[in-house]
Design a protein around this nucleic acid. Sequence first.
DNA 1: CTCCTAATATTCAAATTTGAATGGAATGTT
DNA 2: AACATTCCATTCAAATTTGAATATTAGGAG
Lengths: 291, 291
Amino acid sequence: MSSMDWTHLQTFVAVAGAGSLSGAARAMAGSQPTMGRHIASLEAELGVRLFDRTGHGLELTPTGIELLEHARAMAQAADRMALVAQGRAETIAGTIRITASDLVATYILPDILADLHGLEPEIQVEVVASDRTENLLRRDADIAVRMYQPTQADVITRKVAELEIGIYAAHDYLAKAGVPETLRDVLDHDVVGYDRGEQIIQGFRAAGVAVDRDFFSFRSDNQVVAWRMVVAGWGIGFNQLQVGDGEPLVRRLFPDAPLPSLPVWLAAHAELKTSRRVRRVFDFLGERLGA
Amino acid sequence: MSSMDWTHLQTFVAVAGAGSLSGAARAMAGSQPTMGRHIASLEAELGVRLFDRTGHGLELTPTGIELLEHARAMAQAADRMALVAQGRAETIAGTIRITASDLVATYILPDILADLHGLEPEIQVEVVASDRTENLLRRDADIAVRMYQPTQADVITRKVAELEIGIYAAHDYLAKAGVPETLRDVLDHDVVGYDRGEQIIQGFRAAGVAVDRDFFSFRSDNQVVAWRMVVAGWGIGFNQLQVGDGEPLVRRLFPDAPLPSLPVWLAAHAELKTSRRVRRVFDFLGERLGA
DNA sequence: CTCCTAATATTCAAATTTGAATGGAATGTT
DNA sequence: AACATTCCATTCAAATTTGAATATTAGGAG
């Protein structure tokens, strides 16, 4: 079969244009040895010498000149194709919907999204603050930020970070109720939690402190509300270090307590593969959340 | 800018042509996962969806159709380049592809090509046994052996021989069914033919024997299969004298019947008249087929 | 003549690409 | 309705390709 390696032809055009392997390597993404090998392979495949090695570069042979004509025709067709594709390509402009827990949506996403807006002003962003498993398939959201690995068909997931949890209480509260000396002392305090308190409870159990359902004296299905209660001095609560350490009204307790960390997962519909906009935001979130 | 991987484009053309990743993998040197990855990468590079995955293959999207046009233009330029390169190749070593009908490929070429191999051991030969009109332009083959004058643009042709046709039947068959006395008697016998039976039919008509479409009681699109049927004793058949007279199990009937002879034409692309290898084989075939 | 520059060849470990095997989904067939 | 077939997606070890570093070569200037 007519099995020439088209990559070699691509290199051929570049080398002929630049006049040297090194020059072509600079012009394309590649290195001088690679260019050299491509030309050598092509010459072997065709059974023809394309260049004379003059010492200060490569010079086309007459045969090379004639073949270059056709290779250039290929390059032109490729350019035309790229142009048409450009026109057909989905523009990056448009809206993207991101869903995240209210805590992440409130305390973490704003900074990141503001930066994104600076880089890609044409992308409009919509945030759905909710911990329900939105249906990515039905486009309830384009991208989801979750603290567990989403398990939906046709969904691409990527773990981007592992967030540590800390125990916090307001200075006001500690002044009033006293500072617990040991983890066990926490049982005698007011504790603020949110619905999914399981991981916190398990952390305490792992530390040898038996806790039960009555552990929390305040609950909310909204993590932000719960956190506001901690800051306001209701009692002892939990939060990601990133958020808790940034709040001057509270103080971190038991930095060495064995609380489990939370994984951060990004998820998007498989369309991500082809949508420039979704891909851009997905990668940006992955990069910034990972840091 | 033009940072598309041309290998992906090559795969694109193949997949579009084959209609499926697996088919393209078969047609090219490659595997189905590789084809899939190339297409996926290309779609990502261009920011465009080229195919719909239909479950039973891949179907071009409208965008894909438009882009394919340009990719095909590249493929054509690549073919032309390969053609010119073949013409300029300075070594005689290399592969040459010869297409011929299965009968010629089976009974006539082997001897000739064996001799060629003795004289020019550096030439690798590939035989495409087919009576379809291969595309010499696309280098489906370098040289074609045909029983009619090829009519393709930019193709050089040469008539090298005129082969006589004979009427044959197996001794076994004649003992069982009797020996026909006149051409007209043949109508009462089983006759083996192949698809292109027109010339045979015309020959009978020229001899004053009216025959119609039911003339043949066995047909095959493969001349070799038809001939094997004759040798096996199915009925009366036809073949070139060179082949028929070399088969001891059959006997020639009506040596004087006015059957038309078959011309033998060689054809090669005009670009190739400068290729030592093609010229050598072309001339050798002409010489040996003419004898 | 010798040094200086800019280029091509070579080497070898690292990164990328590949494909055999496997799983799963859809279609056509018995 | 169960089976067979065909096709695409995924996985992971293996083969290939790549590039940084280095050696080598050729031309030009002083």
